[in-house]
Design a protein around this nucleic acid. Sequence first.
DNA 1: AAACCTGTGTAACCCTTGTTACTGTAAAAC
DNA 2: GTTTTACAGTAACAAGGGTTACACAGGTTT
Lengths: 210, 210
Amino acid sequence: MLQELKEAYGFIFEDELIEEINSVGKLQFIGAGEKIIEIGDYVKMMPLLIEGAIKIMREDKDGDELLLYFLERGDTCAMTLSCCLGQTKSEIRAIAERDTKLIMLPIEKMEEWTTKYKSWRDFVFESYHVRLSEMLDTIDTIAFMNMDQRLMKYLQDKAKINQSEVIAVTHQQIAYDLHTSRVVISRLLKKLELDGKIKLQRNSIEVMEL
Amino acid sequence: MLQELKEAYGFIFEDELIEEINSVGKLQFIGAGEKIIEIGDYVKMMPLLIEGAIKIMREDKDGDELLLYFLERGDTCAMTLSCCLGQTKSEIRAIAERDTKLIMLPIEKMEEWTTKYKSWRDFVFESYHVRLSEMLDTIDTIAFMNMDQRLMKYLQDKAKINQSEVIAVTHQQIAYDLHTSRVVISRLLKKLELDGKIKLQRNSIEVMEL
DNA sequence: AAACCTGTGTAACCCTTGTTACTGTAAAAC
DNA sequence: GTTTTACAGTAACAAGGGTTACACAGGTTT
């Protein structure tokens, strides 16, 4: 674990902190599609993403869903952070977008490290900063863009996070992520294909413009 | 200033920190409607809200606006916080919703206090936490609610923040805040009035259900 | 091979929201 | 008092997106 830890976080954390993380953290593997945290769960561990990608979803009382953003290597879940420090339940659902490797940290250490390590403090602040920006971006997207633009952005983001122009996804799944209906997605995808921006296959989509 | 400072933040900050804030902070009065921060501004000071209310707006490249949330006494602008620590430009616009009293803190102190005072650290973390929650709430609103529901929520929020059932606002102003058109707002307001939820007057609206 | 399931394409229709245009009216400016 | 200006009401229409319904195509199961 130490090696991977250093690769992903060595430039950020001082050596002593890396040691500590290495000794108290638990390496964990999550298969693509597996759920990591559910809404309402009490958060007992804080994840550091080593490899892979996680998608963060929001859901309202009626069960309507919406993709908030993706997390990548070097990210942590500020939402979880927030929950840890506040001892509250999770407001979001986290699902592995790809096979994912992460280090789980006991939340007791959070407080301690915050006092002890400047690099940890900076990391936490930076995480919050990045997350707020990401949330602003999400708001911009749903507030100011039409569904066809949102769809194209979604496909591009998803291609990027999965490091492949061909993304494996069904129209129904996209509809869930964008909080709309399958018919609408099929309709808009066909339009995008006619515009030469994507190519449709069964169960997958090739994105031509990245 | 000391007295007001203690009233608003005495329960949170240790005495020594209150002293420091008192000595380096500059008390500032902002009239209702005045702009505090514009998008793209470099943030040189961090505000602590003592009294009044501030509305935080987002704007996209086409000039389309959207109200994100209100700040109240005891709040600070996490977005500004974020900018201070990251030395980046403001992503949002802040406008005094009512006559507002706030303490401006030089950002150099942020780093120092973060190391020195646990109460300050906790305050910063708590601010981020509250702000993320507020952003989630904003996302829920625009993603999952129809315009009539959003409008009613807007009126209720605005009544609450201004501590009055009668709010002084034009249909056009509401349209800007909710990123829609005046005609749509007039239409929906009339419907809400017929439902007995509000009473319309020129330049003001009385909210019956709080 | 037949039956079945899942994913996709498409038409027809409806509701919500956005747009344009015009009217009236209160308040402010002259 | 008359003229302007800002605000509000409303109709008519357009567009985006949600809904329902049905057809069909690949795979999978039996």
